[in-house]
Write a protein that binds this DNA or RNA. Structure first.
Lengths: 166, 166
DNA sequence: CCCCCTATCTATAACAA
DNA sequence: TTTGTTATAGATAGGGG
């Protein structure tokens, strides 16, 4: 597509590589945009440049398409199945579906947060319980030392003499 | 690029649309592949067909690139969303806004679920710790009883004096 | 990094299978 | 849904600002 045909292999010259990247990335995004319009398709592209900078294209947005993709059962990705796609592409323009999903998700989120909050609370309770228990255990342990010492004293009474009683 | 020039607007004929999608998707992925090789760039593409079926291209893989992208601070990402469409621009804003909210919520949900999972795990760990501690405490406690009893025994036989039993 | 130019190479529209 | 053919529209390599 240019003055000369090029081999599809890594471009060595850094400057040329950068120029090539810039031009081809633009072209790629343009093609993606055309595809999304011509076919009413959802498209998401993420590219990291040789300099490791991210560029993205998305219709309707990278996030939406990525989410949808992530939710897809991996085993079905290359095959035909539309069982649980949550946004029928025909619904673009109909925001009721989106709003419904939004409110459902928000409810779910609240539940999760509540759940997490309760778990956290229980964790803290249990932790203090744990501390208390450890404290008690230490007291008991100390008490044992005292008792054993008393025992010794009791066995070796006033006359600190011979009492090798076992 | 064909026998005739075409307008970039939704293809009406379903059959033509399907053919166009198939060919252009192939072309898009080919371009993406060339880009990734020529520039040693990481590329990920996800496309949903008019029939809502997912297709993807990734170098080294969709997941790797997506993961990297998601971890990037959003403010620094150069984004290029769709430029033109046949949807009234009023709606595009709203749709995008809704879609963005949706995806953000979903991401948040995933985080919450992960968090809850970890909390639960820690709760269980702590619980077993707790049980162990209580067990120890009981052992100590029993040991005290024994010691005290021994103390009594030690005191009473030798000198029948003080027997403040009980 | 951007834009311009243009000779050349590539993708693809329409049609057919 | 995909493949092949062919005429043509579109993308781009190389070079210059």
């Amino acid at each position: 597509m240019g003055r000369r045909k090029i081999e599809i292999t890594e471009v060595k010259d850094p400057n040329t590589k950068q120029v090539t990247f810039s031009k081809r990335r633009t072209g790629l995004f343009k093609k993606a945009n055309e595809l999304s319009i011509l076919c009413k398709a959802e498209v998401a592209i993420v590219v990291f440049s040789p300099g490791n900078k991210p560029y993205s294209f998305g219709h309707p947005s990278v996030d939406v398409v990525a989410e949808k993709f992530l939710q897809y059962p991996k085993s079905n990705v290359a095959k035909s199945n539309d069982v649980q796609g949550n946004i029928p592409s025909d619904d673009i323009g109909n925001m009721d579906s989106l709003n419904l999903q939004l409110s459902q998700l928000q409810a779910q989120l609240r539940e999760e947060q509540k759940k997490a909050g309760e778990l956290d609370k229980r964790l803290k309770q249990q932790h203090s319980q744990n501390l208390e228990c450890q404290h008690n255990a230490k007291d008991y342990f100390d008490a044992i030392q005292v008792s054993e010492y008393m025992l010794l004293l009791a066995k070796e009474p006033v006359v600190g003499k011979i009492t090798k009683k076992r």
